[in-house]
């Protein structure tokens, strides 16, 4: 059983949904990135998405873009992210870690080198936002060779036939975008969320489904969790860190928020 299967199995046993937390690596600063990530896990994050900053994040909204610029200004790069991931892995042997990145950063590092580094630092999966079905064959076999799960992405615009092609042979979980747009905290969930997620669940079969994009409160997380196996929270957590007066209060605000979410998913 891999770490993903173990987490979803544990959640089933505990009769709750899994909490996936996205965090830009390098926040609140390069020296405290590890502390923040470990704090999120302590607070109840079941799976961590390690957000790799990119200069031109076209799928992200203002919050994650600003966080990325901040992290880049701190000198964060893939090499350092692998080192941080390795230290987090050493402290938390069971939590699945996913590298969440735009393709160019990985491509420029070298596909083979990146996959090998992921494996050796204990990263379980990779989600490349801008590498759709049409282009993924240049990277997917490399991931498979190193045992890195290639996390598939579905959106409301993805038709059934296309979704089936995307999901074939995938493991880990399916990341389902619940709205048409970029990342960013929203006030409420889209009305058609339930229908969309039911469709994704049906298409994904045994593969767990995680719902993401826009979730900003325990209530929203709980509502989205009705139809999914996991919920993803990103921008709202990132904003708590970047918007804090200093690093320490940013870490504690994000951890408090994640605790609330975890609580809501149990309740």
């Amino acid at each position: 059983m891999d770490r993903f299967e173990a987490v979803f199995e544990r959640c089933r046993r505990e009769n709750r949904k899994a909490l996936v937390v996205y965090m830009t690596v390098g926040l609140p600063d390069a020296d405290h990135a590890e502390e923040l990530l470990c704090g999120l896990i302590e607070s109840g994050a079941d799976i961590i998405e390690l957000g790799v900053p990119f200069s031109d994040p076209t799928a992200d909204g203002a919050a994650i873009q600003a966080a990325g610029q901040l992290a880049l200004a701190q000198g964060i790069n893939l090499e350092k992210i692998f080192a941080i991931a390795g230290r987090v892995r050493a402290r938390y042997p069971e939590t699945p870690l996913i590298l969440f990145s735009y393709y160019n950063v990985i491509f420029h590092y070298g596909l083979e080198a990146a996959a090998a580094a992921m494996k050796s630092c204990g990263i379980d999966g990779v989600l490349t936002v801008d590498l759709p079905l049409e282009e993924r064959d240049e990277f997917l076999p490399v991931c498979e060779k190193y045992g890195i799960a290639f996390i598939p992405l579905l959106s409301p615009a993805t038709g059934d036939e296309r979704a089936e092609a995307i999901l074939r042979g995938m493991r880990g979980f399916a990341y389902c975008i619940t709205l048409r747009g970029v990342t960013g905290a929203r006030e409420s969930l889209p009305a058609e969320l339930g229908d969309e997620l039911r469709r994704f669940k049906r298409l994904a079969g045994d593969l767990p489904v995680a719902a993401g994009f826009g979730i900003s409160s325990g209530k929203m997380a709980k509502d989205a969790a009705c139809y999914a196996d996991a919920v993803v929270v990103g921008s709202a957590a990132v904003k708590l860190v970047t918007g804090a007066v200093d690093g320490a209060s940013g870490i504690s605000a994000a951890c408090k928020f994640v605790k609330e979410l975890a609580q809501a998913l149990r309740g």
Binding site: Y103, D130, P132, E134, L153, S155, A157, T158, G159, R162
Partner: peptide, 20 residues
């Protein structure tokens, strides 16, 4: 053909593919 040799392609988020 979506590529010119190794260049070109459709490196966009899933949300945009159906639009393309």
């Amino acid at each position: 053909e979506t590529h010119y040799g190794i260049y070109g392609g459709q490196y966009v988020a899933e949300t945009l593919l159906p639009t393309l």
